[in-house]
Design a protein around this nucleic acid. Sequence first.
RNA 1: UGGGGCGUAGCCAAGCGGAAAGGCAAGGGACUUUGGAUCCCUGAUUCGUAGGUUCGAAUCCUACCGCCCCAGCCA
Length: 563
Amino acid sequence: MKLDMPENFIQDIITEDLKEGKNGGKVQTRFPPEPNGYLHIGHAKSICLNFGLAEANGGLCNLRFDDTNPTKEDIEYVESIKEDVRWLGFDWDDRCYYASDYFDRLYEFAIQLIKAGKAYVCDLSPQEIKEYRGTLTEPGKESPYRNRSVEENLDLFRRMRAGEFPDGSRTLRAKIDMASPNLNMRDPVLYRIVHAPHHRTGDKWCIYPMYDFAHPLSDALEQITHSICTLEFADHRPLYDWIIENVDFSDVGPIKPKQIEFARLNLSHTVMSKRKLRLLVERGYVSGWDDPRMPTIAGLRRRGYTPEAIRNFCERIGVARRNSVVDIAFLEHCVREDLNRRAPRIMAVLRPLRVVIDNYPEGQVEWLEAENNPENPDMGTRRVPFSKVLYIEREDFMEDPPKKFFRLAPGREVRLKNAYIIKCDRVVKDQRTGQVTELHCTYDPETKSGSPGAGRKVKVTIHWVSAAHAIEAEVRLYDHLFRSENPDELEDFIADLNPNSLERLTSCMVEPSITGASAGNRYQFLRQGYFCVDPDSSAGKLVFNRIVTLRDEWAKMAGSSDK
RNA sequence: UGGGGCGUAGCCAAGCGGAAAGGCAAGGGACUUUGGAUCCCUGAUUCGUAGGUUCGAAUCCUACCGCCCCAGCCA
């Protein structure tokens, strides 16, 4: 996987380190997800960064599951995470690690700290620890258990491990500084007692290391040179460094990992926290983690996004320390750009309006040639059937058109893509509702595409499908999940859900060349957007997801003031 | 009122003492058998504010203002 990483401040740091000969010229990164939820596009940014930086600097990136909290993690998530990282196009070879694989060594490191008088077993309850911690503006108080002897600490810690004490009754704490202005340094908990089975280590442990202890040491064990994480961990860096400096792991290697923080990705019109995404899934606001409206990798994949588009997006948004909200329009731009080059064109009528070509011979069928992708002639051509009765898009006809409407109207002409110019002669309406039910048109036989007479200009070209040959399909149209640009800052983000984020059209008509399409296939429906075959499709019925619309000048005009 | 971060166009984002990159969005035009694509053009006399240093400041200094994060035995 080759990423064209633009320069960023982390690359600057790496470049500087390399110049100074740090770490023997080695660059080693890691992507460390906690298996407690599905990956989303924010993780994609981190994945691209970690794998990209490693690759750009001749190094490697490990996949490491940060699974130190058995009560929140599950094997289901590790499988989905692996699938998503792989799908994005990254390869960790045989370097898939688990913090839980290090539990034995981490335990030894803890013993080491105890022996050095730098950690102690504390009997304070969770509530007491909180009270002793102090506040943002006042220093904390030292635990009465802070100065136990090394022997007693060793004994107690071994018994913690042996399961002699109930959950919450004791912890192992680092002995640092209860008066530190950085709360993370006020004797942070290193180990807690949790009598819960772990998805990988089973019942072997009843004490589990905290992130602040496990993470720097896992990095050390893997000899990570640059440990990249998000901004909220900046306050933890002094603790990260304290662990690295106070634990002796020189037998594993000389590299002392350094933590570097960057701003996580926020996307407009969606939420990114696992908690909120889980809520959407659990309360049924979406169909699942892979609902095509979700910003999860699984959701984007099902929607039809390509890994290339997502990677390109991640590379182009930049890496900085400033909190920001990237406009989702930029993500959409990235897929359009990718799909414009790759997606074959086909004609599909989403909201059919029947058109009868009065002067076209009954029963005649012409198979007309159509380009598969004007951007790429190598993609070849196909034949589409033309006959007397067609469907066109309801939106492509207006009985009383406004000034800028160039499409079909009584007495007006349009070109049918790859076919003929037709003229609208008569409008048939439902007597009761007044709804237009059918158009009668005449075609100009001289204007067949490719023929000498085809040069005649009309204002616009529309798509169509032969009624007798059309394949009926369901099409799901998606819009932003939330109405607000930044639902995250709302008191009640659920109330901001876009009621129109999904529209299902069940009687769409697609040209017959679609026959045989399978889940995951992507197409451009001419003039409408990019669509992807959904796994819900069955032999009898295709289901499409709209990935993204095409840019639409007319929609912009129509959407504004005078329609 | 403690500590840690961050303020460059509507949204991202380069810039690191010597005349404010680029992308998205927006607007205008050319072209077009997709109102698609493509191609042109239009934006900051100014970088949160105010002072200061300097021949010269978005870049250095000072003060102020604003926003984000931290008081889980979560990560």
